[in-house]
Design a protein around this nucleic acid. Structure first.
Length: 630
DNA sequence: GCGCTAGTTGACGTA
DNA sequence: TTACGTCAACTAGCG
């Protein structure tokens, strides 16, 4: 067994947003180096474990992806696997570079705000260690920085801007096939100490069932660099039926593309948010974790579309942005906005593209960084109660609650469903900051893509991207359009399963006799689940029609005042003077709202009211609500 | 500066 | 059942 010693590049391929072997420009770059040895690694980052709120479903999905990738690697080379090393890259890499005599570090470019900061330091550390760094774009169709450059250095705020730049940049490249062979990894000595992160604060602490132990040893509990388990993370079993991994992603993509008519004539606004199984592709989480390459998705679909266009069909192929590939352009748009705006894109404060609305439950800001801290100020205890009821599917509006319960148990809801709950929480119901909703989605959505999440919440709250705030989703009329008999509600709000079609979206309109007959009483605020043998479903937490009118008025006024997140008056808190009755409102309790005696109507004129004091009764909507009730 | 149109996905009433 | 106009009204982009 004498083997001639070959001296060549010793490469770490650092997997992050690319848990796949197909369509990976970074992997190709690593292999093009003709390495003597190649370690495919994942660094276990304390940021994700302790500092970002992640529900069990998302963790399960990540671990699925890692396990599947590791198995796929091993199938190609039995000596290779995904090496999961339990330490943050900032402290690990300098030690690893030396110990493993690494010559190159290769990874996929990530323009997320956290990743940018992290990677900047990693590139410097590699430079200091004499390690060459290769970064490749693979997460998006276009490099978000190039997209911004092509848009005159400005954030991409409309789909037409994205389409214009994409036209200039040309078609995205074809996907790269998975490698047929992989070099051996080198030896993996761990002759250095592990630096464990502080578990304080552990913002996922409440979710854990047992102690978090994923940092117990550098190579894991068995010393084999294996993918951690949910038990290691101390997390409960995931409840979602959706599972991760490249094998499943490619299988699903093949299923989608096999139905040529579906693929070629897909039209987003016509996808029912109430369908189970989903009317859309369910590939978003795979795109997020990189278990599916976006170019793979784009070209597999585009090839079907091109073929369809050649044939004679009753139904024409659809065009971007409503077509299937068009959906990817919205992703590009949000990545472009994030790339240009950086950290402020994820908050109102200091965000030049985001309108300021005097929402309830605004984020608290660290004045030294101008960044949101993750906590928020409770200006109104009623708004806080509404927020909690929204987040846990107890609003008393079955359509909203069904969606929020689906989100919590399965980690996924259809796009229009997301619209409905987001509109309801912000401009079309609760008048609560979009940042509160975005945080809940960030924790619970399997496909939580930070840029898309922030962008879509700004869209729905009419603070950026979209401004037609008078188009408001009704929790009753909107779902009826898709699901007359309320099957979706019956599935996710089973206590209402026996209610009549007529009452399913408005169970409070049922007579007490009917409620008894159907086995569920409509009462309370959601804290009571049963009353004797009867189930209990909460009363609606407000009169939707009144809240819609009040929100509409509030939005109109706030647009008139015309502040953006980077306005000095937003930054220094003096915006409160422009919304003078801010101190009024729900803070005193549900029934103790402002007396609303002042004239509620606004005479604020279009665009010209910046700096003009609003008339009393407008700062929060509650004075208006009270007035409307009289 | 002005008028006009388009903007992936509203609700409601009428024909 | 579907198609369209109205409601009261936003911004951005274009000519």
């Amino acid at each position: 067994m004498t083997k001639q010693k070959v001296v060549g590049p010793r490469v770490i391929y650092w997997h992050r947003t690319d848990l796949r072997l197909h369509d990976s420009p970074a992997l190709k770059a690593a292999l093009d180096l003709k390495p003597e040895c190649l370690w495919q690694c994942w660094t276990w980052d304390s940021h994700y474990v302790y500092r970002a709120r992640n529900g069990p479903n998302r963790w399960q999905y990540l671990l699925d992806c890692q396990r599947d990738l590791s198995e796929s690697i091993t199938k190609i080379n039995s000596k290779a696997k995904l090496f999961v090393i339990r330490e943050g890259p900032q402290t690990l890499f300098p030690k690893l570079f030396k110990s493993w005599r690494v010559s190159h570090l290769v990874f996929e470019k990530d323009t997320d705000v956290y990743a940018r900061d992290r990677d900047e330091s990693i590139v410097q550390l590699a430079k200091d260690a004499g390690v060459e760094v290769i970064v490749k774009v693979g997460r998006t169709l276009y490099d978000p920085d190039e997209l911004v450059k092509g848009n005159g250095g400005k954030p991409t705020m409309s789909i037409s801007q994205v389409q214009a730049v994409a036209k200039k940049l040309g078609e995205p490249p074809r996907p790269i096939p998975a490698p047929k062979s992989l070099p051996d990894p080198g030896e993996t000595p761990l002759d250095f100490d592990q630096e464990r992160p502080s578990a304080d604060p552990d913002i996922n602490g409440q979710t854990r069932e047992s102690k978090e132990q994923s940092f117990s040893a550098l190579a894991g509990p068995n010393g084999d660099f294996a993918v951690p388990t949910m038990e290691e993370l101390g997390l409960p079993v995931a409840t979602t039926p959706h599972r991760g991994g490249e094998s499943l992603a490619l299988q699903r993509l093949a299923e989608v593309c096999k139905d040529k008519e579906y693929t070629a004539t897909f039209e987003k606004p016509k996808c029912a948010p109430t369908e189970v199984p989903a009317s859309t592709t369910l590939l978003s989480a795979h795109l997020h974790f990189g278990s599916l390459g976006v170019r793979e998705f784009y070209w597999r679909v585009q090839d079907v579309v091109d073929e369809w266009k050649k044939g004679k069909h009753k139904v024409q192929a659809t065009q971007p942005p409503t077509s299937l590939t068009g959906q990817l352009l919205f992703r590009e748009m949000y990545f472009g906005a994030q790339a240009a705006l950086g950290h402020p894109f994820h908050q109102t404060h200091a965000n030049p593209s985001c309108r300021f609305i005097p929402w309830h439950l605004q984020s608290t800001i660290d004045p030294s960084t101008n960044r949101a801290t993750g906590s928020y100020s409770i200006d109104s205890s009623a708004a806080e109660r509404q927020f909690q009821r929204w987040a846990h599917g107890q609003t008393g509006f079955p359509w909203i609650d069904a969606l929020m319960r689906q989100l919590r148990s399965e980690g996924w809801i259809e796009h229009l469903g997301r619209h409905a709950v987001a509109c309801f929480l912000t401009r079309g119901g609760c008048y609560i900051s979009w940042e509160r909703g975005a945080a809940v989605f960030a924790e619970l959505l399997l496909d939580h893509e930070p840029a898309c999440n922030a962008g879509n919440w700004q869209w729905l709250s009419c603070t950026a991207f979209f401004a037609q705030f008078y188009r408001c989703y009704s929790p009753v009329a909107f779902p009826k359009k898709w699901d007359k008999s309320g099957d979706f509600v019956r599935r996710y709000v089973p206590e209402l399963a026996k209610f009549s079609d007529k009452c399913i979206y408005e169970p409070w309109t049922a007579s007490v006799a009917d409620q008894k007959k159907w086995g569920c009483l409509i009462k309370g605020d959601g804290s009571e689940k049963e009353d004797g043998k009867m189930k209990v479903y909460p009363e609606p937490m407000f009169d939707f029609g009144e809240r819609r009118d009040a929100c509409l008025k509030g939005m109109k006024d706030a647009y008139g005042v015309g502040l953006y997140g980077n306005d000095k008056r937003v930054m220094d808190g003096s915006w409160k003077k422009l919304f003078p009755d801010d101190a009024e409102g729900l803070a005193e309790g549900d029934g103790a709202q402002s007396d609303g005696a002042e004239e509620a109507g606004s005479k604020t004129k279009k665009g010209g009211a910046a700096g003009k004091k609003r008339q009393a009764g407008q700062g929060t909507l509650d004075g208006v609500v009270k007035k409307a009730k009289k």
